[in-house]
Write a protein that binds this DNA or RNA. Sequence first.
DNA 1: TGAATATATGAGCAGATGTTCATATATTCA
DNA 2: TGAATATATGAACATCTGCTCATATATTCA
Lengths: 123, 123
Amino acid sequence: MNHTSQEELLNGLSRVSAEMPADETLYELADLFRVFGDTTRIKILCALSVSDLCVADIAALLSMNQSAISHQLRVLKQARLVRVARRGRSSIYGLDDDHVRTIFEQGFRHVRHIAPGEEKTHA
Amino acid sequence: MNHTSQEELLNGLSRVSAEMPADETLYELADLFRVFGDTTRIKILCALSVSDLCVADIAALLSMNQSAISHQLRVLKQARLVRVARRGRSSIYGLDDDHVRTIFEQGFRHVRHIAPGEEKTHA
DNA sequence: TGAATATATGAGCAGATGTTCATATATTCA
DNA sequence: TGAATATATGAACATCTGCTCATATATTCA
């Protein structure tokens, strides 16, 4: 490895380094995706994309402990992925905004090997 | 809770249940997002979105152990998020397809509170 | 108010995950 | 071929995560 190529390397890395978003942004990004990275939470989000639901309904739907669902809903709420509205003694949860659907959609496309721009196929 | 509302509830849950994708799809989806859910991997993907890089360069860029980077690249490769091309004794890694950029983009939008359709603002 | 119902929360535990260290496996070049 | 270089991989360890159990906190209604 001669001097010139090492200089080029350093310049190249500096350029990459300069184009990287701030570390804090990258942490936030990883935090967001980490929330999507669990089957239980994915199922909850998927269910809520069909209909708003109370905690007990979600638990019944996933055949899971009420406590487990409640804990996960808290994680989802902290990530601003779901919102909650109290109605009587129930808490009705729903998706917080459309980012969730869009992020989902891209995930599906990757899993199903569909190019980002390409037409959506069903099932 | 009377009989009618309980019946409605069951019907509602059945409907939600029917609209949910297959469990296996949801597992794959969670697996995909789990890969995005780590700061080191996010940084690697971010760097590769700027330029293809060899292992040593990525390690230098992130001030991290070569072994740690190599382990993470394997995870990224298994998820089909990066591809590798051997050039001499180096392995040059790059993003595998455009899903990565698109998923990133949506993540950024969420973190920065930009609506999915809305115009992109810089930095 | 008090019983019943719905949800939230804290502690504890088992399993998963990311890093490091040591070392194995290419690949180049003298 | 053998030394040097670049990457890959296995084992070990500390940390993180998600679930369960027990229990606390609303909220409704008789």
